[in-house]
Design a protein around this nucleic acid. Structure first.
Lengths: 148, 148
DNA sequence: TGACATATGCAACTAGGTTGCATATATTCG
DNA sequence: CGAATATATGCAACCTAGTTGCATATGTCA
């Protein structure tokens, strides 16, 4: 079931069981963070994560959160992105390679996929520029439905 | 000559003359910063800018640099971007809408243009998601010719 | 239940960035 | 040219995100 982890979206509970099966300890911070990340509609930065934890009754030191994020990344459960800001945001790893629509008014973030991906462009660039592309980031900034 | 400023690339000296003609003072920090930005191959962050100024014999306080950047942005001479980092970088405004190839080994940055721009995708997204796109950012990360 | 590896908190630190206020300087005008 | 003055600059103090070392607490397994 978990062999093809990389290609699937799982719930917090499934991730927790997987980590437990690998011999990792399940603490209240760890499971709460996974639940928050799983239920949250947009990638979260550490200060926000700390706030959500507090709302859930868990007062936690920022050091702990940074180290937990580090751990979850090492387990390939979480990945980080920059959304045109000075801080990293984190989300659970998922199946699809998606991009983001970021509302410059209310800061809501939606996912979006391209109908034609950038593979063709990347091949062209690779050839013309002799630059070996490993990944890209693409975000759209503008106004969401409500804020227009 | 300067009416179509937005669509052209100018040299530091031309920008300086333009600012002077608009009644702005030309200080050694201002002209040095413009020269550094004009000659630099990649967008610069403030700490780097301070370093280059020092190399040019100009010891300057970071507050001054931040305020000068702010001024140059208000004059539409400089724009900021995030290149998947925690800090902003700055470059002179230019004619072409380009993207970046960022080497994850040596951190060199090259400009690149798409052969098909994203207009078509943006129209589709705008319609499907009811999201009014104002701008996008697209960067490619990988290995440059030398670092492969 | 105890042992022990792992998780957590705390304090001190770093780097990028901002603000208020006092001082210096580029330009304009007499 | 030399003053007046608006603008530019420096400084100190502050903020937020993120990191590190070390001591303490806790989840898990035997």
């Amino acid at each position: 079931m978990f062999l093809s982890w990389i290609y699937m979206n799982y719930t917090a509970v499934q991730i927790i069981e997987f980590l437990r099966s690998r011999g990792h300890r399940i603490t209240k911070v760890r499971s709460a963070m996974l639940k928050i990340l799983a239920h949250n509609e947009k990638p979260l930065a550490v200060p926000e994560l700390i706030e959500r934890l507090k709302e859930a009754g868990i007062i936690v030191n920022k050091t702990t959160v940074y180290r937990e994020i580090e751990f979850l990344q090492s387990q390939n459960m979480v990945k980080s992105i920059y959304l045109g800001e000075d801080k990293k945001r984190y989300e659970l790893v998922g199946e699809d390679h998606h991009h983001h629509l970021i509302c410059i008014s209310c800061e809501k973030v939606e996912d979006v996929e391209l109908s034609n991906d950038l593979t063709h462009e990347e091949k062209r660039i690779q050839k013309e520029k002799k630059f070996k592309i490993q990944r890209h980031s693409l975000e759209f900034f503008g106004l969401c439905r409500k804020c227009q």
